[in-house]
Computed example of a mutant assay.
Amino acid sequence: MMVKVGFVASPLTARSGVYRSARELVSAGRDESLDWQLLLGVSAGAPGGRPADDPEWIVEEHAEPSGLGGVRAQSRRVRDFVEERDLDVVVSLIPQTDMALAIGKTPWIAFTRGLPWPAAGEAKLGKRVAWRTLERAALRRAREVWATTGVLRDDLDLRSPVEIVPAGIAPLERSWDGAGARTNAVWAARFDEDKRPHLFATALQDSGIRGRMFGTGHLQREIAASAPSNVTIEGWAPPSALWEDAFVYVGTSSREAYGRSAVEAAMNGVPVVLASSFGCADQLVSTDEFKRLFVLESADPAAWREAVQRLRDDEDLRRRYSDHLVSNARALTIAASAKAVARRLQELQDRGVLKARR
């Protein structure tokens, strides 16, 4: 008998990457007749809203980040969720849930989707050291730690083994083949230091290219005040709105464990220009030619501007690159990710690391 699994992400401050992928992952597992449940704790300030037709296997409720007291409260809430749903194991999807589970007794697995502590430049040294220390202590209490990509596993730099369990997204219909003129270069991420929004805005300055920036975060107002007139700051938007009239997605993040928006763009046939730090870069861009042109190590705005302008100006290149991306992105589905999760859970059960209580 397969173990009964609860996936938990709480608290979340946005209905973006983890929120969406958690829903898709558990749904894909249930499509395979797996007994998976989901608990989402979402901040009152998160843009968007809960779908009106949520199934009974999703619990979405209000939860706010609130320091160590919040961790203890989350630990109690997860314990109650386990008892309510008669679960055998919990898969944690964010660091705060890791910490909550680490002070409880429920068997759990940490499924890391991004570096779970601030990198240099994202917070003061004391906060970075404290967060890293607490999270590493929590991860030592997990039955196993998973990472979505080799990039993330290397960034974690844990002394214990980390299993690669790939991420994925719901399959999307191709909306463009690169033919004909489009006007928008799209950036979509949190407005935080590690996403380098300034690099996108600066790269498009005096380029004649319209830039659209989607997302929320503490740098949003700063970018809005300094961005050139051809770059608009549009806040949160549903995924379907991102690719309207887009000829390129630009991923400037200095660290990106996976890169969901890049995969969505690729599935749509929209070319991508990515920092080499994107975990999905090697999965999406697999020829030497395209890697040289569109996977960038440089933080020089001129290099990014050149890559974007090349795609705007060369339709044949756009079409070939669009075909290449669509072909590679077809392997990065949420169904494939759910099957990888199920295989790993079965392996752990076969080894006696996890046990079904029923």
Rank of each mutant, 00 (worst) to 15 (best):
M2S: 14
M2E: 13
K4Y: 01
G6R: 00
A9I: 10
P11S: 11
L12F: 05
L12R: 02
T13V: 15
R15L: 12
G17I: 11
V18K: 03
R30Q: 12
S33G: 09
D35V: 11
L39H: 12
L40M: 13
G41V: 12
R50Q: 12
R50G: 01
D54R: 14
E56V: 07
H62I: 11
E64S: 09
G69A: 13
R72C: 07
A73M: 01
R79K: 15
V82Q: 04
E84H: 08
S92Q: 09
L93D: 02
P95V: 00
A102R: 02
K105M: 03
A110R: 01
T112I: 13
R113W: 01
G114W: 03
L115Y: 00
A119W: 00
G126P: 00
G126M: 10
R132T: 05
E135Q: 14
L139A: 05
R143D: 04
L156V: 02
L156E: 03
G168I: 12
E173S: 15
D177K: 06
A181N: 07
R182Y: 04
N184L: 05
F191I: 08
D192N: 11
E193C: 02
R196V: 08
L199G: 03
L199A: 08
A201E: 02
Q205W: 04
S207Q: 05
G208H: 12
I209Y: 04
G217A: 09
L219A: 10
E222L: 11
E222G: 11
A224N: 09
A227G: 01
G235W: 09
A237S: 14
A237Q: 15
A241T: 14
D245P: 12
D245H: 05
Y258R: 08
R260M: 14
V263E: 10
A266R: 08
G269T: 10
V272G: 03
A275Q: 07
G279L: 04
L284Y: 11
T287K: 06
D288C: 06
E289F: 03
A299K: 14
A302C: 02
E306C: 04
A307E: 07
V308I: 15
R319K: 14
R330S: 13
R343L: 11
R344E: 14
Q346M: 11
Q349S: 15
D350W: 09
G352S: 06
G352A: 05
V353P: 00
L354M: 04
L354H: 00
R358V: 00
